[in-house]
């Protein structure tokens, strides 16, 4: 599948020029409007981030990030179709135009940003890499992992982080690299490896998928920075701006106390920041090529950042993750968005 994806990319790139090199191509926004829906790349199933239920309804913080963009464009948070992608397939799918945006717990790194022809449009979750370990082994810190066998998912930033960490600590390890997160968990529960490594936010979810979740625990160490966020193709600045500012609107809305519940009442607010955010003043929408009330639609239909967090990954969900550094900058975290002005 990965093979085909990459080859498809090659062919798409090659045939593109046969068809129309130089001719003015339609912008992503025009394409999306034409199609009538947003095509969004997500995981094949990761609780809290993007996961389909039995009826095929997707939920998760990454899913909501897509829905917010659809709400901004169409005034309809349901005008999204989701493409499940493995870690390996995701960038090719975006580059080749199969999807309009990628929202798949993807870490923002220099190489990805600068050499793949992509742009990162912000951060919707600040994560870091950690370890899940079998309790029997009796290890309670990552520095005791010398010689361990580690299960990893291919095509993630985690492979390199892992090597770097062990090398820096002068320790050895044996990596077992699987294609999908399902196989990675299977390998771990079959006892092929001592530890499983991935972004910390996912360890809790993966642990809950084990036959006996009590048999494993998460080590306290965080060995890397994993700022996760939505990604778009490079070269369409308008589209880049739309995705970037829809997320910013959600974060600003939380800061200003605008929620999905009070969004309608807030239309009457005389706070100029709220007026600009909800489109009652300033016509921010036109600058992005969106309807004037796009901010109101986003917050009303999907909610502000805090709502999106609490609903999908927060303390009251199965993942049960504290806000931690994902709290607003005004509340001790680092979640901070440029002003809508």
């Amino acid at each position: 599948m990965n093979k085909t994806k990459s080859i498809v990319l090659g062919m798409a790139l090659a045939s593109g020029a046969f068809a129309a090199s130089g001719a003015m191509a339609a912008t992503t926004l025009e394409n999306v409007k034409e199609k009538g829906h947003l095509q969004c790349g997500v995981t094949s199933g990761l609780p809290g981030f993007s996961q389909p239920d039995e009826k095929g309804n997707w939920t998760g913080i990454d899913v909501d990030t897509c829905r917010a963009v659809a709400a901004a464009i169409f005034g309809d948070a349901k005008a999204v179709e989701f493409t499940p992608l493995t870690a390996k397939e995701r960038f090719t799918a975006l580059q080749s135009g199969e999807i309009d945006m990628l929202s798949r717990n993807t870490t923002w790194t220099l190489t990805r940003d600068a050499s793949l022809g992509l742009n990162f449009a912000g951060v919707n979750y600040y994560d870091g890499q950690g370890f899940l370990i079998n309790k029997d082994i009796g290890v309670d810190d990552a520095t005791q992992l010398d010689g361990a066998t580690v299960c990893i998912q291919s095509g993630t930033t985690t492979e390199l982080n892992l090597s770097d960490y062990f090398r820096a600590k002068g320790m050895e390890f044996k990596p077992i690299v699987f294609d999908t997160s399902e196989q990675t968990v299977q390998g771990f529960s079959a006892g092929r490896c001592d530890v499983l490594t991935s972004d910390r936010s996912q360890l809790a979810a993966l642990r809950s998928k084990l036959a006996d979740p009590e048999s494993a625990k998460i080590l306290p160490n965080t060995i890397s920075k994993e700022p996760l966020g939505p990604v778009v193709r490079q070269g369409d600045d308008q589209w880049f701006n739309i995705v970037k500012w829809v997320l910013s609107v959600q974060i600003n809305a939380e800061e200003l106390g605008v929620t999905s519940a009070n969004a309608d009442d807030m239309l009457k607010s005389d706070n100029p920041n709220i007026q600009r955010l909800l489109g009652t003043d300033g016509d921010m929408g036109a600058k992005l090529g969106l309807p004037a009330d796009f901010g109101h639609k986003v917050v009303k239909m999907v909610g502000n950042y805090g709502e999106m967090y609490d609903r999908n990954v927060g303390p009251d969900t199965p993942l049960g993750l504290d806000r931690g550094i994902n709290a607003l900058w005004t509340e001790g975290g680092i979640m901070y968005a440029p002003p809508v002005r």
């Binding site: 990459s6 580059q95 699987f178």
Partner: peptide, 26 residues
């Protein structure tokens, strides 16, 4: 599929993903 490090897993997998040079690697 089972994590044996053959050419496709190592080179067309991890190397491709870390470098992003899909066309060359393929």
């Amino acid at each position: 599929a089972i994590g044996y490090p053959d050419l496709v897993a190592v080179f067309m997998g991890t190397t491709l993903n870390q470098t992003g040079q899909a066309v060359e690697v393929v």
